[in-house]
């Protein structure tokens, strides 16, 4: 890799900005950044399905939601539960849900997969509204105790302080994203992209399609659960409409499309762009959905590769000789 030093400098710069961000921009923008990061992870798990495996989920909010509820209910019901186990409970709840749905969902693909995930997403929404004894109905679960992030002898961080929460959330979210990124680089990740391009051929090469899809689905769901769990901790509240609403299933779709399906960082760009647009438009109007809807339509019609496609195009134009191979970006 010839431009390794450039890369290292860029990453160091990025890390530096991350560390000093709260001091530089203040509380308001720190909180916006936390929400952006939560959605960046959430959208990344979505794109792990769509961009890397070709599976379009229309009910991804069910994993986000169950992760949030899992953590919230655990903290509410179990006295003195430490923080990390609470997050793990959220993630495991999402993994369980994925496991239950697997036998049904791995048999289908394309539109049928989208429909089924949509329907099950709605089912989860209805359940969250109706199982009042567990979920608190429309009010959701809120005001649960938030334990400090505590590892004996190493660290103890009171994350009810927004600034400390920021650092805690950044570590968990960045770590999760890194793990997913690493997964895409493994042999399994390469089989996954094979499924996206040509599921039939994958079978004829000796891979068991349903099992492979199931593992992808579980990983994606589990990490979406982590995103939901951090979200619940951040708000100290998780409610049915917020977590399981159809809008929350559409959010990662829009972010991924706007940011670029064919790139790992696309959903992260998308999350940033939409947070930005949200922040801007919500100052002038309450009708944010019309703006995001229009953006979605425009991107799909005129720039299907999204923002990262645009970046690649610019880089190809100015920085290096014409790059004949866009797919290379995936592997390098």
């Amino acid at each position: 890799m010839k431009n390794r030093p450039v890369k290292v400098i860029l990453w160091a710069l990025f890390l530096g900005v991350l560390v000093f961000y709260p001091s530089l921009f203040g509380l308001y923008f720190t909180n916006i950044f936390v929400i952006f990061s939560i959605y960046a992870l959430y959208a990344t798990t979505f794109n792990y399905l769509l961009g890397y495996t070709g599976l379009l989920s229309f009910g991804h909010a069910m994993f986000f939601g169950i992760g949030g509820y899992g953590t919230a209910i655990a903290l509410e019901r179990i006295q003195g539960l430490p923080l990390l186990p609470a997050i793990i409970i959220g993630a495991l709840a999402a993994v369980m849900l994925a496991l239950i749905l697997c036998p049904l969902l791995v048999r289908v693909s394309g539109t049928a997969f989208a429909m089924l995930t949509l329907a099950f997403g709605q089912l989860m929404h209805v359940l969250a509204l109706k199982l009042r004894w567990l979920t608190g109905g429309e009010d959701g679960v809120g005001g649960f105790p938030i334990p400090p992030f505590h590892i004996p002898g190493v660290i103890s961080l009171d994350i009810t302080d927004p600034k400390k929460f920021y650092y805690f959330a950044m570590v968990v979210l960045a770590l999760s994203m890194w793990v997913i990124w690493f997964f895409t680089k493994t042999p399994f990740g390469s089989i996954q992209t094979g499924i996206r391009d040509n599921p039939r051929r994958v079978e004829y090469l000796g891979f068991k399609l349903p099992h492979t899809k199931a593992v992808v689905f579980i990983i994606s769901g589990g990490f979406a659960g982590v995103a939901g769990s951090i979200y619940a901790l951040f708000q100290n509240l998780i409610s049915a409409d917020d977590a399981f609403g159809i809008g929350n299933s559409f959010a990662p779709i829009i972010m991924t499309v706007v940011g670029g399906i064919e790139s790992f960082f696309g959903p992260i760009f998308g999350s940033a762009i939409l947070s930005f647009i949200d922040e801007l438009t919500s100052r002038y109007t309450e009708r944010v959905e019309i703006v995001t809807g229009l953006i979605l339509i425009l991107v799909i019609m005129f720039a299907p590769k999204g923002f990262s496609g645009f970046l690649r195009f610019m880089r190809g134009k100015w920085l290096s000789p014409p790059n004949a191979n866009p797919a290379l970006e995936e592997t390098k």
Binding site: G194, N198, E262
Partner: peptide, 11 residues
């Protein structure tokens, strides 16, 4: 022809 169209020859 039924290859993985977006993947490289190597992949």
């Amino acid at each position: 022809t039924s290859s993985f169209s977006k993947l490289t020859a190597f992949q």
